[in-house]
């Protein structure tokens, strides 16, 4: 491996990493919001909306992100909806992630025993108050490991952004290889930069999980 080449490529990879992170965290934030709203809808069994959420989940979990991005980026403009590549990345990641986040929040909500709800009701709390003060906080802390797994999964999925010409890590590596044929160096840096992005999340995740386990609510 050529050291000089490596060093000279680093700024390009750094920029790519920053772009990936920027789109990544916006998309993930978006997916959290979808996840919470979707899970609340299924939790309260809201008519019609519940069915829509179900269809949404199946649709986005059973099609590749690549296809979803193509749809948003190339098909929507045909019906007059124009969108930048970055916004497309955020939207695609958010929609895909939302489907997974709903499922994660939902299984957290379902794991809270029904008698906690009844205990809250017996104090005169309304359905909404019970959800907000009693069930959701417990469900979220139970869901943390699953949510972090989703975050890692979504950050990895960003690698398909290159197909809609976003200069993310994958795009940068492919581009450089195409131009200068320093394949080994480029791929080496690609792996390193993905690790730089994902290892901290994994480590923080493991720490939080351990703390949660020790501080567990269990009686």
């Amino acid at each position: 491996m050529d050291k000089e080449t490596l060093v000279s490529y680093i700024p390009l990879y750094r920029d790519a990493l920053l772009l990936t992170l920027k789109i990544g965290w916006q998309g993930i934030l978006f997916s959290f919001v979808i996840g919470l709203i979707g899970a609340a809808i299924t939790h309260f069994k809201v008519k019609v909306l519940k069915t829509i959420v179900g269809i949404y989940i199946e649709l986005f979990r059973n099609t590749p992100l690549l296809v979803q991005l193509f749809f948003i980026y190339f098909a929507l403009p045909k019906v007059g909806v124009k969108i930048t590549a970055e916004a497309c990345g955020v939207l695609g990641l958010g929609l895909l992630g939302g489907a997974y986040m709903i499922e994660t929040f939902r299984s957290g909500l379902e794991s809270i025993p029904i008698i906690q709800t009844e205990s809250s009701y017996s104090l005169g709390m309304s359905k909404l108050q019970t959800f907000w003060y009693i069930i959701l906080p417990q469900a979220v802390s139970i869901s943390v490991p699953g949510l972090l797994a989703n975050v890692i999964f979504l950050l990895k999925e960003t690698s398909v952004f290159s197909t809609i010409s976003l200069m993310d890590l994958m795009f940068t590596a492919k581009d450089l290889i195409g131009m200068y044929a320093k394949t080994i160096e480029c791929l080496f840096l690609l792996v390193v930069f993905y690790l730089i992005m994902l290892l901290p999340v994994s480590i923080i995740g493991a720490l939080i999980e351990r703390r949660l386990r020790y501080a567990g609510f269990g009686d």
Binding site: I115, S119, S122, L123, G124, S126, Y133, Q138
Partner: peptide, 27 residues
Amino acid sequence: IGMVFQSYELFPHMSVLDNIILAPLKV
């Protein structure tokens, strides 16, 4: 109507005091 359950059903994510004052405050 106050109700006390066999399995207590305190809210595990709240302190004793918060468990007790939650409903008086919110309800």
